[in-house]
């Protein structure tokens, strides 16, 4: 089976927000800004590059995750990454539950 394409994500140091590594070697909270690496070699090389941002105290714990490349763009293959990409819980806010603006 062909290896899935991959993207790189991390959490921002200051607030823990989910961010994605872009083709421009920066970080964006928008999933759609994240770069997609089609093979292991390019993904591994990008992950090494992304770790410069750890030293620069921008993000913590960057890692690769699988995406399925569709006509509508890349989609995370795991429930975990689908939820992270939305920056919020999947359930509707309730009186006693999460509210407020999503940091970006």
């Amino acid at each position: 089976m062909a290896m899935a394409s991959q993207m790189i994500t991390a959490n921002r140091l200051l607030d823990g927000a989910v961010v994605y590594f872009t083709a421009g070697k920066s970080w964006s909270p928008n999933f759609t800004d994240g770069a997609v690496w089609p093979d292991k070699e390019s993904a591994d090389a990008a992950l090494i590059e992304s770790k410069e941002s750890v030293k620069a105290r921008i993000v913590v714990e960057p890692y690769l995750f699988d995406v399925a490349v569709t006509e509508a763009g890349p989609k995370p293959t795991s429930a975990r990454e689908r939820i992270r990409a939305d920056h919020k819980p999947t359930f509707e806010p309730d009186q006693g539950s999460w509210t407020g603006q999503i940091s970006g």
């Binding site: 927000a17 989910v18 913590v60 939820i83």
Partner: peptide, 10 residues
């Protein structure tokens, strides 16, 4: 000090 890093935030 009870501070974890979770999916979306600390």
């Amino acid at each position: 000090n009870g501070l974890y890093l979770q999916l979306h935030a600390y």
